[in-house]
């Protein structure tokens, strides 16, 4: 079925949570190939739980979840879904080079008895080139700025050539210059046809990159449509609440902690 094959993510009445308790429920969502979807919502709304559900990191409690045309539980090759977590340390309690971090993205595509060899360098350096960090490959990751470290995580997610990229707050907590560089990286990926699902607070940083907005609030989808429509949706909500028009870029005021269970 042609329609099916262009559908990268399909959720029907899906619920996700932790330890048996639902955090997001009744989610109907379909992401087509090449779409760039921003997932917005206040802290604790369940947006991180939702995208982690696509990666098998939060529990799938009910409904249907299929990723790349396969029910999630039966998706064997997890490298087809790339993941950029929101993290502040990249390597735990030891130091490692940028290249060493990026190479870990290739491991699950190899059998366990075959460690990565020299041939793995080519895709790793290509992924670093995509995010503009090829010249830092042999640097200690801890010496990179916050924005550069995010790009290292994007390169790690890209190295196994995933068909869809799930990102959790890629632009949060980095300075404005780095945000612009990150937005440029995402724009290039989007133009190359990469399907992306991006949890974000800073929609303004991703203007022109995002095709579609999904808003999560209190564990439910509250908006699913175009960025233009979202501005209208926000203004309507604000009028209903008698607060005057909201910021047109849909940016949320609370940008501190990430909220939700990790």
């Amino acid at each position: 079925m042609l329609v099916r094959s262009t559908e990268v993510v399909r959720l029907h009445q899906a619920a996700f949570g932790y330890q048996g308790r639902p955090v997001v429920t009744d989610v109907d969502l379909s992401v087509r190939r090449g779409e760039v979807v921003a997932v917005l919502g206040p802290n604790g709304s369940g947006k991180t739980t939702l995208v982690k559900g696509l990666l098998g990191l939060s529990e799938h409690l009910s409904g249907e979840v299929s990723v790349l045309g396969t029910p999630l539980a039966r998706l064997r090759d997890r490298t087809r879904v790339g993941y950029v977590p929101q993290r502040h340390t990249l390597t735990g309690g030891v130091r490692a080079t940028v290249l060493e971090v990026v190479l870990t993205g290739l491991l699950s595509s190899r059998p366990w008895w075959r460690p990565l060899g020299r041939d793995a360098l080519t895709p790793a350096l290509a992924a670093l080139d995509t995010v503009g960090l090829a010249d830092r490959a042999r640097f200690d990751v801890e010496t990179l700025s916050g924005g550069q470290q995010r790009r290292v995580l994007i390169a790690r997610a890209l190295v196994a050539r995933p068909e869809v990229l799930v990102m959790d707050e890629p632009t949060a907590g980095v300075d404005r210059t780095s945000q612009q560089v990150l937005a440029g990286v995402l724009r290039r990926l989007g133009e190359a046809g990469t399907t992306m699902v991006v949890v974000t607070h800073e929609l303004s940083a991703l203007r022109g990159v995002v095709d579609r907005i999904v808003e999560v609030d209190s564990g439910h989808l509250t908006y699913d449509g175009t960025p233009e429509g979202y501005a209208v949706h926000q203004a309507e909500l604000a009028r209903a609440a008698g607060r005057g028009p909201a910021a047109p870029d849909g940016r949320h005021t609370r940008t501190g902690e990430t909220g939700g269970a990790r």
Binding site: L57, Y83, P85, L90, T91, L107, S108, P115, L116, R156
Partner: peptide
């Protein structure tokens, strides 16, 4: 250790990512 060190490194460094990537 020589056989699995890259995998140990990946899991010890970022357990959540390792799980998401199918290790």
């Amino acid at each position: 250790v020589l056989l699995l060190r890259q995998r140990f490194f990946a899991v010890a460094g970022d357990e959540e990512y390792a799980r998401a990537s199918g290790l």
